[in-house]
Design a protein around this nucleic acid. Structure first.
Lengths: 235, 235
DNA sequence: GGATAAAACTGATAAAAATCACTTTTAAAA
DNA sequence: TTTTAAAAGTGATTTTTATCAGTTTTATCC
């Protein structure tokens, strides 16, 4: 999905489509037959990079960050998954370990789907494997895009861009021109932008002075998306 | 495949497996029935980001760079594909446009496979879609890893790392301790590392002084991979 | 083999980002 | 409600990277 439908190309295309949405009732039932619902509190780990998977997770409620931690214990957030998305399937598909870690950004409800059920569903449902192929190809486009952004955009531009993306993820109703509240720690935000926390704080202060955002406690309120778009899109 | 089998984890895992290698003869024939062989000279474009695909390409000979160009015409190389790999399938799978461009790094021989043949082969061969799912999941791991490297490693570290990766791609025989010749312009190398050409040149000069590499014309000869590994892996 | 255009290389300088050393504010617990 | 630990915020400084303005070397075409 493009942000506000204004930008048709991949640059602004950060949303992964829901895999389950494209399946019929029978296929969904096959996949979800033995699911186990689990509550995760803010900060709880879902799975850890380098471990072998025992199944996948369907996000019933909440937001999950997918991230990698380097040798100096610095975290890079790869993607923020939202309600309706599946996570943890890459490891099962590649027959290896989890390539990233996952943790709850807020209180979440996840359905655990055992590995056997998932793999059986792929075998028996061509629709599911088609859907997965489409999703994975799209994920490639999104990540390739991120890579290009990281090397060619400044921290200020990347922060503006991530605020636009997070605004989409944190709005649950659809009202044009609405002020969206982004509840994300400065630490998480800087790990998403790929810079030090201090830089994020400083640039947020600039955005505040420029009337683009305001804050209420540590929550960020986006007042003027168009200015963020202008900053992120600067050539 | 891990570099030299020494590093089992994703950090050193940059090689995409061959998709065709896992298929049986009948499945290969199905896919390659209407292929058209084409020669590409160094620098020739194979496909361009944002265009709709008419098929995919199998690399019979040579190396192809996959890259994105930003608004300021700066290029970021996402991946270097080698002999035996398929390229251009992401757009067909996601039913959209090419997420990146592709061009020949050296004289190449490519087999063009029409879209219909590829899509029909996926429909008819569960082995092919399994294989594709595995490859795409692995590509995700590789790209997620690159993203983390770009944000947390210095230019010097990234250059050392890419020289290790390119050394693997440019060696066609297997002799332990062999000096491998990397024929890659400084421009392409800097677009791979994600920095300015001048920085690459300067750091290459350092590596030369330290006896890690030598040059013959613009070709880079890697004399001491272990020192490169030590630099790239520095914590 | 010499002309010449392109690529490689070098040094100086400017700009951006990271790091350090704090103070202030916020939110959770007692 | 008060305490207090964690998170947010600020300023100064250092380090890294980008940019500019060239010279030298390499490779290709007559």
């Amino acid at each position: 999905m493009s942000i506000q439908g204004l930008f048709p190309i991949a640059k602004w295309d950060f949303q992964t489509e829901s895999i389950l949405a494209g399946l019929d009732a029978a296929e969904r039932d096959l996949l979800l037959a033995n699911r186990q619902d689990q509550v995760y509190r803010k900060g709880d780990t879902v799975f850890r990079e380098g471990t072998f998977p025992s199944g996948i997770f369907y996000i019933q409620k909440g937001k999950i960050k997918k991230f990698k931690i380097d040798d100096n214990r610095r975290e890079q957030i790869i993607y923020v998954a939202n309600k309706g998305e599946l996570i943890g399937y890459h490891a099962l598909l590649s027959q290896g370990r989890h390539p990233d870690s996952a943790a709850a950004l807020e209180e979440c409800m996840l359905s655990f789907i055992p590995a056997d059920d998932f793999l059986r569903a792929i075998q028996q449902s061509p629709a599911l494997s088609q859907r997965l192929l489409k999703t994975l190809a799209h994920e490639f486009a999104v990540l390739a895009n991120s890579l290009s952004l990281f090397t060619h955009k400044s921290v200020r531009e990347r922060l503006a861009l991530q605020l636009i993306v997070m605004r989409e993820k944190y709005k649950d109703r659809f009202e044009p021109g609405m002020v969206v509240a982004i509840r994300l720690s400065r630490e998480d935000l800087s790990n998403l932008v790929g810079t030090a926390r201090e830089n994020v704080v400083r640039i947020l202060a600039e955005f505040k002075r420029e009337g683009i955002i305001s804050t209420k406690g540590s929550t960020i309120l986006v007042n003027d998306v168009n200015k963020l778009i202008a900053i992120a899109d600067y050539k």
